[in-house]
Structures are given as C-alpha cells and as structure tokens.
Simulated scan of single mutants.
Amino acid sequence: MSYDWIQRLFIENADVYIKIMDSLWSDGEALSDGIARVLESYGVRKGRILDLFCGNGRVAVNLARKGYEVVGVDISMPFIKNAIMKAEKYGVSDKVKFVAGDARRLVELIGNERFDAATIVWTSLGYYDEATDLEVLKQIRKLSNDNGVLIIADTIHRDKIAADGNRSYYQRYGDVIVLQRDVFDPISSKLISDWTILEDEGTVMRKVINSISMEIRVYTVTEMSSILRRAGWGVDSVYGDLRKLQQFHPSRSYMNIVARAI
C-alpha cells in the first residue's frame, strides 16, 4: 500500500490543509471543552496530555489554555511550525510543546516522558493499517501513567461509512472547497477517498490540488475496542459527539471513544 498521499496532503500542500484546520479552530475550542469535561470526570483537572497527530494545534493549544501541559506530535513540520505560532498567539508557549515526527516511532520521539491522558482527533487512526494502529496504541500506553485516559475523538466509523455507500459531495472550509468521491470496500473495510481541492478567490475558483487518493482503514466500535484492549486499554464509554457528550448511535458520523489504561 502506498502512503504517498500523506506526504502530498500534509507536507507538500500543508499550506492548504492549514487553511482547512484554521477554519475549524472554533470547533477545536468546543471539542477541547468536551475533552476537558471528560478528563475532569476522571479526576484529570490538571496534568500532562499527549496530543497525537496534533495538526496545527487546534486541540493542543486550547487544552493548554485550560491549564493542561500538552505535548503535540505530528509528522508535518509545516503543521508544527504553525502550531508553535498559534501557541505564541494565545500566550501558552510555556504550557505546550510541539514535536515533529512519525507517530510510528512515538516512544523514540518522546523518550521517558509520562502522561495523564492522550488524545487522537479527527480519524488519524487508520491512515496506515491495523497492525500499525495497534503498535501506536501500545506506544501511547507505554507513555501513559497507570491510571491514564485515552480519548479518540471525531473518528469516522464503519457502520456509517457502509450505510452511506459510494458517494460524491463537497465540503467547504472557509475559502477552501474539497470535492470528495468516497468508495467503501467492505472486504478490506477501507474507505478510498479521492480529493480535489479548490480555492475560492472571489471571482474564480483555482484548482490547488488536482487529485489525491487516500485509503483509510475504518473500524466499528467493537473492532476498535478489541484493538484497544490488545494495546492495554479498556473502553469505558463511547460518544457520538463529545461537545455535548451525546451518546453514540451507528447513524452518527463519528465515534468518540474514552478508554482507561488496564
């Protein structure tokens, strides 16, 4: 399987993807509120959080604004540089640190640091394959305290993807428009998603990226729970929306899983 799309979308065209993330910044604030409420229910009102696949810091920075000490990790150096700028803008440079590197080498990147909680936001698990996801989750467990909490948020799931079937649609993120064609393979449980990205320049639409094809392994709640247990995590609860702490239903677009170290 080729992972060239990760390089193309998150590194070579990082400036475009940063615009997408910037358009979701206020949503990152709302999501961080929900994450903080969940953490508080586990007694984690302060402490250290690992934000994996952190992008440009829309969750990490907002958690730091709530008083947490956060370490954000992402493979994209442009994302990390933008996240550092965001931390400076919001006055939390002393509360959040950003590390550029591959999550598949997480322990090597982080060293002996330990965390009270970890977050993975926006369907980052599944970029590679099930074996890789298991290994990443095991590494997070190694870096977590014995009573650590893991929150996997805003992650697409197989039930909804299979129900939607193959479809073409678009999504607008500020001035960026993503033309998307999704095909679901029920045998491999992979979503094959082709993106063409345009920018609205007022009088014209400029094509920024002609076509990027990505393959994402999508899981059911049951499958993800099984992988988490093998990695040393036990699932406590599943939400459909963390912002309002609404319970999960298969018709919802996302699953949000809260797990504890076991």
Rank of each mutant, 00 (worst) to 15 (best):
Glu108Cys: 01
Met77Lys: 09
Gly91His: 06
Ser26Phe: 13
Ala259Asn: 00
Ile177Lys: 04
Gln171Thr: 15
Tyr127Thr: 04
Leu242Asn: 07
Ser253Arg: 13
Ser32Gln: 07
Val99Gln: 02
Arg167Asn: 04
Tyr219Asp: 00
Arg158Met: 03
Ala259Gly: 00
Ala60Trp: 03
Leu9Gln: 12
Ile161Arg: 02
Ser189Glu: 07
Asp15Trp: 06
Thr203Ile: 14
Gln139Arg: 07
Gln139His: 05
Asn82Thr: 10
Asp182Glu: 05
Tyr68Met: 10
Arg167Pro: 02
Val99Met: 01
Asp94Asn: 08
Lys81Gln: 11
Arg8Gly: 15
Leu242Ala: 08
Tyr68Val: 10
Ser213Ala: 08
Pro186Tyr: 03
Ser144His: 03
Tyr127Pro: 05
Ala162Glu: 13
Gln247Glu: 15
Leu150Cys: 04
Val258Tyr: 02
Glu199Asp: 13
Asn147Cys: 03
Arg105Asp: 11
Leu245Trp: 08
Asp159Lys: 10
Tyr173Val: 02
Asp27Ile: 08
Leu109His: 06
Ile20Glu: 15
Leu137Ser: 04
Lys89Glu: 06
Thr123Gly: 10
Lys207Asn: 12
Ile35Asn: 04
Thr203Ser: 13
Leu50Cys: 01
Lys19Gln: 12
Tyr239Trp: 01
Met85Lys: 12
Lys86Phe: 01
Ile151Lys: 09
Ala163His: 11
Ser211Tyr: 15
Ile110Ala: 07
Asn13Met: 09
Leu179Lys: 12
Ile197Arg: 13
Gly67Asn: 12
Met214Gly: 09
Arg252Met: 12
Tyr128Met: 10
Gly47His: 06
Gly111His: 05
Arg45Asp: 11
Val208His: 08
Gly47Leu: 01
Trp122Phe: 14
Gly28Cys: 10
Gly43Cys: 05
Arg229Trp: 10
Gly202Trp: 10
Arg206Gly: 05
Ser32Trp: 12
Ala117Asp: 02
Met224Cys: 06
Leu109Thr: 03
Leu63Phe: 04
Ile120Gln: 08
Gly174Glu: 10
Asp51Cys: 01
Met85Trp: 07
His249Asp: 15
Trp122Ile: 12
Gly57Gln: 00
Ile209Ser: 14
Trp122Pro: 13
Glu40Phe: 15
Ile262Val: 15
Val238Gly: 02
Phe79Lys: 00
Glu215Phe: 01
Ala163Ile: 11
Val136Gln: 09
Pro250Thr: 11
Gly165Cys: 03
Ala36Gln: 11
Val149His: 06
Ser225Thr: 09
Tyr3Gly: 13
Met85Phe: 05
Asn112Ala: 11
Tyr17Gly: 07
Arg260Val: 08
Arg167Ala: 02
Glu108Gln: 03
Thr132Cys: 05
Gly202Lys: 15
Gly101Tyr: 01
Glu113Phe: 02
Ile212Gln: 05
Gln247Tyr: 15
Ile140His: 06
Glu215Ala: 06
Leu134Asp: 06
Ala162Asp: 07
Ser41Gln: 04
Ile257Asn: 01
Val73Asp: 08
Val204Gly: 10
Asp185Phe: 00
Arg104Cys: 05
Arg206Phe: 01
Asp15Glu: 15
Ile151Trp: 09
Gln180Asp: 14
Trp195Tyr: 15
Tyr17Thr: 04
Pro186Cys: 07
Val238Ile: 14
His157Arg: 03
Asp185Pro: 00
Met224Pro: 07
Phe53Ser: 07
Asp129Gln: 05
Glu130Asp: 03
Lys86Ser: 02
Val183Arg: 12
Tyr68Asn: 09
Asp4Gly: 14
Asp194Cys: 11
Asp154Val: 11
Lys160Leu: 13
Asn62Arg: 13
Val149Thr: 05
Arg45Glu: 14
Met21Ser: 15
Arg48Lys: 15
